[in-house]
Design a protein around this nucleic acid. Structure first.
Lengths: 342, 342
DNA sequence: TTGTAGGCGTTATCAG
DNA sequence: CTGATAACGCCTACAA
């Protein structure tokens, strides 16, 4: 079959595509001047700029950042990878980060990795293909393949919500194992001697759980039950988790849930089973999600300042992008918020 | 200038910026052949392809989609705009949409508009500047400026989670006002004569609320209280909302909350105030969030099949991108799920 | 099946 | 302050 030029072309770009040369022609200036009006208005006389802006409005010109990015080798885009938006966990840091990067002239595009290990590799490759000016990664433990890719790409990277000995570039997070240990100390200070933990199957939740258990064993005390749940964990996972371990519970047990969803589920199931809280079962969650404070009674949890993580991540990433040589780690504190469940 | 590259292909070290010509040189083929191996492998001999792939691996080549997009006028990118990730509402459709578009070779980048009206305008401009091959918008009511932009851009658009007489392009959603009316009928069929509504300050929640109220008035029955809440609404908004209207409640009132967060908050506050449910206060939420079924007792809500919305949205958008001329609307059903609160 | 020529729309750079 | 020119890295179109 021969191709004829009469055939309508396949659906390609916009039919009416205004470009910088159109604006320039209408305004009676060179394309470069239009570019300057858009990117460095200080270097254009106010009179010219006004004429150009009028032409832009009249034509409805929307600059092509693909072309601009190719030419300038700056995409003005930051990619942020989060495991999921199903959990309120990452909402605060992402919102804050997005807002601050936006003020600095960068668009933040969110991508979801899911909690499946293979997912992140493909995603990072796909994202690097778009040449972001920076990357925000949730978590600090990545495959060797990803580490190599990131190193080769020479992209500023900020890792959040985790800690690691040797971050890829800059890291803004907190120590999950230490957090678990702090919860253990909190319970122990309350006179507890028997403990249980329900932890999601994700590296950071696991770190919180092992930190908790390790500290308890250091004190020579007893962990009566340990149970791994799905990630991200649901209320139902917490309920099921409690049902699974209920036979092992001591008359007075302190339970650490890897998220407030888990803790809430455990508390609901306990109430249903006639187990009193905090009398028979003390419970501490993680995340300070709204439900921990707005349910009745509110329950104890651990709070991390998500907005601060987002803000510092933005500051650090901008510094890296602008060449400030400050790779390193920023570890933030966490805070146990005692409420009615302990 | 000659195009011959004098860069010595490094043996193992990371190359700052490997390009298609480097791969081509190493594999002993033309750049175009490398491009074909990546994009249309069927048109390259297996032998050549293998050599090229080896070169790609050896150099750690990551194609530059910015350059490719400029040249092909296809970005292989879809932008999805959601109001917030703080609510579980949009999680299902977005996850499903992302997965299906990914299988079709498109990257979906999420952007947050917030619930502030001005936000969407700037965001849409910024996104169009990156020349997405398609757009997913949450909601079907946009400013005139946005409608004009989208029309000019000739980008396939799918609007979800809402309905409108004249969608921009294709729409996959449901009728919020009708949903509210159905909840009214459900309550009325249960013998209710007095009603209340707590609705978030967002267009779709408002439509659900007014649909509910309108149907009740049609029946000549009484709305004892109407209250507008923040968007997105929290559990605390629901609690506060109930406190605000408690003085107006009839001995037996049926309450419609604009989301399950609101309904849950109302139920908690009611219990605290000694108001029995469903005896004195029947409650119906919206969204079938996990909390509605996993709290104790579970409460009545309205379910919309978010995964179906995401799936159909992907199918419709792909059809539009491929030139299938099917602009129009797909309205999905909703389902009231009676549980212990009614 | 593979290669060559040219251009996608913008900006860096340097000249006026 | 403004303009002309040459890339940016890849892919469409056509040729061999």
């Amino acid at each position: 079959m021969s191709k004829t030029t009469i055939n309508p072309p396949p659906n390609r770009g916009p039919l009416v595509s205004v470009k910088i040369t159109d604006v320039a022609a209408l305004a009676g200036v060179a394309p470069m001047t239009v570019s300057r009006v858009l990117n460095t208005p200080d270097r254009v006389s106010e009179l010219t700029a006004a004429r150009v802006r009028a032409a832009i409005d009249q034509l409805g010109y929307v600059p092509n950042l693909i072309a601009g990015g190719l030419s300038s080798r700056r995409s003005r885009m930051i990619a942020a990878i989060v495991p999921t938006i199903a959990s309120p966990m990452f909402n605060e840091p992402v919102q804050t980060f997005t807002a601050l990067m936006g003020e600095a002239g960068y668009h933040v595009m969110l991508a979801l990795s899911g909690y499946t290990p293979g997912g992140e590799d493909r995603l990072v490759r796909a994202i690097l293909a778009r040449r972001p000016d920076g990357l925000l990664l949730t978590g600090a433990h990545h495959s060797a393949a990803i580490r190599a890719l990131l190193a080769d790409a020479r992209v500023p990277v900020v890792e959040i919500w985790d800690t690691a000995e040797h971050p890829t570039d800059v890291l803004v997070g907190f120590d999950h194992a230490e957090l678990g240990a702090a919860v253990a100390e909190f319970f122990i200070a309350g006179g507890h001697t028997h403990f249980a933990v329900l932890s999601a199957r994700d590296p950071r939740a696991a770190a919180r759980g092992t930190g908790f258990v390790a500290r308890i064993r250091q004190h020579g005390l007893t962990v009566v039950a340990e149970r791994v749940l799905n990630a991200p964990s649901s209320i139902e996972d917490g309920r099921q988790g409690l049902r699974d371990i209920v036979a092992s519970l001591a008359p007075r047990t302190a339970l650490f849930g890897s998220s407030d969803m888990v803790a809430f589920g455990a508390l609901i199931e306990a109430r249903k089973l006639g187990i009193s809280s905090p009398g028979q079962l003390a419970v501490c969650g993680f995340g300070d999600f709204e439900i921990s404070r707005s349910t009745e009674p509110p329950f104890t949890t651990v709070r991390v300042d998500g907005a601060a993580i987002g803000r510092i991540a933005a500051e650090q990433l901008l510094a890296r992008i602008n060449g400030a040589a400050t790779p390193g780690r920023v570890l933030l504190p966490f805070e146990i918020i005692p409420r009615s469940s302990t």
